[in-house]
């Protein structure tokens, strides 16, 4: 265990030394990796904020639930019980008679309503779900529409659905962007390691000849990939935090124009920590690929 630790810390130190020996290359790689990780991460943060914005707007959304015309009191009771389980937030029952009275109270409609042979309105529930994302709201509507005794469930505005579709598209784009940049990051690491292997040919050959194991030769390169990716991820986290900070004031001002107190949410500590972790993992993968290819001839 102790010797394992020593071998790894020695490899780590040698990796640090190699990164320090070529400071310009290291810096350029870190900039490239940092930017490559900042873009998808920024997209993600933007979407998260858009989602929060959508949720706070959707809090005032309504779903109208119209029952079958011939629904009886028993049906109303069953639906009510289902709503207690399914709906987060408030709802109220509007009996068909009350709905008719509501119409009659409207001066313009009173004449028309008076001319009807019978009450054309069904019993209804008006729901105001709280703390629910736009896409979940649509799912809830669909679920409610399938309840027995329910004729029709209506989401009161279409923008919620459009917003949900927009979010889905946004997520897809961020995922694609992240994939593309992940491949880029692996490629950058691959190249860094390839150049280092070339530069260390003599050392690798001698080390092999005097008893170095494959692991001894490979390990420092893995750590170079790991370190470079991790530091690049850290740079991305810092860049993103600085960028969001810079946007904070203008966005608050913009929100104030619309009478809102919206403020941009930054990275949580966990999300921040995730950036170097992902960078390190991708760097390690790039190093693995590169070392496997570049050292193939040395393993005899």
């Amino acid at each position: 265990m102790k010797s394992w630790l020593r071998q790894h810390s020695a490899a780590f130190l040698r990796a640090l030394k190699r990164l320090r020996q070529a400071p310009l290359n290291t810096l350029l790689s870190l900039v490239v990796i940092g930017i490559a990780m900042t873009l998808p991460a920024a997209g993600y943060v933007f979407l998260e904020n858009a989602k929060t914005l959508g949720e706070s707007a959707a809090g005032t959304q309504q779903i109208s639930l119209f029952l079958d015309m011939d629904a009886r009191a028993a049906t109303v009771k069953t639906v009510e019980r289902e709503l207690e389980i399914l709906v987060p937030g408030q709802w109220r029952f509007v009996p068909r008679a009350a709905a008719l009275e509501h119409l009659q109270a409207d001066a313009d409609l009173a004449d028309i309503v008076a001319g009807l042979p019978e009450n054309p309105l069904p019993d209804a529930f008006i729901l105001e779900p709280a703390h629910i994302a736009p896409d979940e709201l649509e799912a809830l509507r669909a679920r409610l529409a399938r309840l027995p005794g329910v004729a029709h469930a209506q989401l009161d505005s279409a923008w919620v659905e459009r917003f949900a579709a927009f979010l889905a598209l946004g997520r897809l784009m961020v995922s694609l962007l992240a994939t593309v940049f992940a491949v880029g990051l692996i490629a950058v690491t691959f190249n860094t390691i390839r150049l280092q292997v070339l530069a260390q040919q003599a050392e690798i050959e001698v080390a092999r000849l005097i008893g170095a194991t494959t692991a001894f030769v490979r390990r420092p390169f893995y750590y170079v990939g790991l370190l470079q990716g991790g530091l690049g991820g850290l740079a991305a986290g810092v860049l993103l935090t600085l960028g969001l900070d810079a946007l904070q004031t203008p966005i608050a001002r913009l929100a104030a124009l619309y009478g809102s107190h919206f403020s941009l949410a930054g990275l949580s500590p966990l999300q921040f920590a995730l950036l170097p972790a992902i960078g390190a993992a991708l760097g390690w993968i790039g190093a693995q690929l590169s070392v496997s290819l570049a050292l193939r001839s040395h393993l005899a």
Partner: peptide, 23 residues
């Protein structure tokens, strides 16, 4: 097969680094 970018001491140390001796 000496390593020309290293000091004499580091050249001689290489086999010991390989077996993982404490620095």
């Amino acid at each position: 097969k000496l390593l020309f970018d290293r000091s004499a001491l580091d050249n001689v140390r290489l086999p010991l680094d390989i077996i993982g001796l404490p620095p």
